[in-house]
Every structure is written in C-alpha cells, then in structure tokens.
Amino acid sequence: MNNEMHLQFPAKSINESFARLVIIGFIAPLDPNAQELNEIKTIVSEGVTNAIIHGYEDNEDGIIDVKAVLVGRRLRVTIQDFGKGIENIELAKQPLYTTKQEEERSGLGFMIMESFSDQFEVHSEVGVGTIVSFEKEFLPLDSSAQ
C-alpha cells in the first residue's frame, strides 16, 4: 500500500501526543505489532520534543512539519523545524549529551530514535532549522514475531 501525509502544528508540548496519535493512525492499515507501534510512537515523540525544546526553545510560535510516506510496508518520516539548528550534530548524537541539563533532559533522544529505526538521519543548519528523518520496515503480516 502506498500513501502519504503532511502535518503542521505549532510547537506546543501538548502536540507531542497529537503527533503520536496521527502517526499511529497513519500506519494502522499495516496492522503493526505492539512493539513496532511503540517504536514509531517513541521516535516521533522524541523528534517533536527536540523541535520544541531545542529547535524553538519553547517558543510556541514555531511550526513543526511532519511528513510521512508509506511504500508497501516501508515507512519514511521527516520531522522538520525552522528553528535555531544544531551546531555540532555528532556531539548532539552522543548518548547523555544535552545542552539542557537544568531541565533534566536525559540526552538520549537521538540514541533512542536511532535504535528504534532502520535508518536515521539528522540534517541541520544553524539559524535555518533541523530535519530528522527515519525509515522503518514493518514485519510482514503473517510474521509470528512479536
């Protein structure tokens, strides 16, 4: 099945759960298993949270743009913000690295996104914004694997 969707919403933290619900709805026809659903929800949640906290630094006027494309059982998602951008992506990807220690950020967002997806990329330009994209192939429906 091929399909696509495009979603835009302001950078309010209440929209983190909204974005999770939308992506779950989008992939529902594939009948994903519980683990796949949870992994997709988690990646999207981390991506949107990053855009809110780091991209826009809690400025709720910022716009977050989520696009998803489904080709067969392969999902590709991009989460884009037009915020401040990341100076050093390799550093930002380091587990436990965070610029927001005082806000109790764990610094694990990118690591979790990377481990839950088949392919994961971050593109960023300071002053322009950040795009994170990931791909995930869903198990065939007849697979008995959990």
Partner: peptide
C-alpha cells in the same frame, strides 16, 4: 502505557 526519554529524565532527576 508510554514513556520516552523525558520520562527517563524525570526519574534520573
């Protein structure tokens, strides 16, 4: 039912 790295941050905090 769901927890992401923000949950980890709060427990660690």
């Amino acid at each position: 039912d769901f927890m992401d790295s923000s949950g980890i941050g709060i427990i660690l905090g």
